[in-house]
């Protein structure tokens, strides 16, 4: 029974990992940027929610009303102020700048909030669950996380393929120069992509903070989980990131069942295994 439980919890936590991954995937798809500070931004939004909740006393899920737009706004200006200046043919500058940003966010959080960990309290909702089979229960909160991930992916897919913003994303990603000729300012297109990315990041950050303790140095770990989900699922495939997240979650759950020290390691090994046998991921995007 423990094993079945581990798998089910793993699947549900996969939703959170897909949320970590979706923003990474979107940004890479639109501007070929891999943002090393992605995980730190997730943690930073968790702190933002914590501050808002402290000030207003709202429920963590309600705090999203504030956290999401603030995060999106920050994302827009982060892109305009920093990333747009270093994007180009050479991948090194954006990579190094995001690496520097990662260190800045971590130590900025440390200086502001100390090393103590915090948690967002979502009340009884956090722990309540129902039994689907005798001995196997499902928590409402993990389930909410999982379905939110599905909803986010559906929304992102719709945005990408059926809205004028999505058209601008695809066109700029295809051919920046010709997109300019259509009147699309690629810097603004990128900024919108980063704004959307940060909104998803904020969602992930608040869920993360309800689920477990968080501290200023959790970011790199979340970046790596998101990255692994992207690569396992296959680059450029949003549904793939969900499957990648689920595989990662299940591998971690099974590893933890074996030995608590093996939880994260088992996830990494599953990733390396996929990389060894299917370097393009399990569901690479079909060209066209």
């Amino acid at each position: 029974m423990d094993w079945v439980n581990a798998i089910i919890q793993g699947i549900l936590i996969g939703g959170l990992y897909a949320l970590f991954a979706a923003g990474l995937s979107l940004i890479f798809g639109v501007m070929r940027l891999v943002n090393i500070a992605h995980g730190d931004l997730i943690v930073a939004t968790a702190y933002l929610a914590w501050v808002i909740i402290k000030a207003t006393g709202v429920h963590p899920l309600v705090s999203l009303i504030f956290v999401l737009p603030i995060a999106a706004f920050i994302g827009y200006w982060l892109q305009i102020g920093i990333f747009n200046r270093v994007l180009g043919k050479d991948i090194l500058p954006p990579l190094l700048v995001s690496f520097g940003l990662s260190v800045i966010i971590q130590n900025g959080l440390l200086a502001t909030f100390t090393v103590d960990s915090h948690k967002l309290n979502a009340g009884v909702f956090e722990t309540s669950s129902f039994e689907i089979l005798p001995g196997i229960s499902m928590g409402y909160f993990p389930l909410l996380m999982f379905f939110t991930a599905i909803a986010v992916i559906i929304a992102l897919q719709y945005m990408f393929y059926h809205t004028s913003l999505g058209r601008a994303f695809r066109a700029t990603s295809d051919d920046t120069e010709v997109a300019l000729l259509m009147g699309l300012d690629n810097r603004k297109v990128y900024a919108w992509a980063m704004a959307i990315c940060l909104a998803v990041v904020a969602l992930a950050g608040v869920f993360l903070a309800i689920r477990s303790n968080f501290d200023p140095f959790m970011g790199p770990g979340r970046l790596i989980f998101g990255f692994e989900a992207v690569i396992i699922g296959g680059l450029g495939n949003l549904w793939g990131t969900l499957i990648g997240g689920v595989i990662l979650g299940v591998a971690q759950g099974l590893g933890a069942e074996l030995d608590p020290g093996w939880q994260v390691l088992a996830g990494h090994l599953a990733f390396l295994l996929v990389l060894a046998i299917r370097p393009r991921g399990l569901f690479p995007r079909i060209a066209g």
């Binding site: 058209r167 695809r170 066109a171 990603s173 295809d174 051919d175 120069e177 010709v178 997109a179 300019l180 000729l181 259509m182 009147g183 699309l184 300012d185 066209g288």
Partner: peptide
């Protein structure tokens, strides 16, 4: 002016090699 402003003034280019956006449909 940058290219995205010039097009608003009323100049359009049909680029060499056509350069359609491959991930967009004809109508898009």
């Amino acid at each position: 002016l940058p290219a995205n402003e010039i097009v608003k003034q009323g100049i359009a280019l049909v680029p060499e090699g056509r350069r359609l956006f491959p991930s967009l449909s004809v109508e898009e």
